[in-house]
Amino acid sequence: MTAAPRLVLDTVCKEFAAPSGVLPVVSDVSLTVGDGEFVSIIGPSGCGKTTILNMIAGLERPTSGTLLVDGRPITRPGADRGVIFQDYGVFPWLTVKDNIAFGLTLRANRMPKRERERIATRYIELMGLTGFEHAYPKTLSGGMKQRVALARAYAIKSSIFLMDEPFGALDAQARSAMQNLLLEVLRSEGKTVVLVTHSVEEALYLSTRIVVVTARPARVRTIVDVPFEHPRDEELHRSRRFVELQYELREVVMREYATQARLRGEDVRAAGSPMTHREETRA
């Protein structure tokens, strides 16, 4: 982390308005991501890790604290930060090729048609989508849709990638294939990545650092440096160090899951009470 950091989060807080008052979702998160780093954020579902990612993407504003990309405050989404969403967001009315080229046709990243074609074709090949250029997304499997979404984000040459449980909806085989494809692409293109996931194994396999966040509101619980060298391959999963680390991390994460489950129980009760109250007044 000697070079200037790409991303800086400084005491970032986010609160949402809730019927019962203010609901803190992210609390005092500070994090610095250097160039070429792969940082995973891991924590229980519903804890606010997606909100952290959305704030980096510029889709949501923090209640307090600052977020910087390359030293500039983040105020809105930008082509410098590519986002991969959990539900892919592949445009159903465009063919695979038009989906991938979509970003390149926007004014922000406009380029000559030939150049556009070249880039689209390159990523179609890279993502193994050859033969499906003119297919509509409805004919694709989940894994293929995710590859289209990846290619679309890659095509605009974002140097930072924000991924929100990108492989969560895939089966185990597709998931592991997509992880390897991602590593392969990152090796050749050199990107900075922030990945939100709830899989300890995925985080360990892909990242250089892992940020474990607490149950809601999300706080940084601990940051773990992942000691494995790149390039990595499937063999890594079987190494003793990997298994040990996975076990240790899972312990930490499971504790947060338990807390979150307790929280959710309270939520149910909290949501139930005003309802009964209303019923009573009506009666």
Binding site: L59, P77, G78, G82, V83, F85, G89, L106, R107, A153
Partner: peptide, 15 residues
Amino acid sequence: LFIRVARTLGATDDE
């Protein structure tokens, strides 16, 4: 979701 995706790809409001 589609609007968010387009925004993160750099689309303006009229795009």
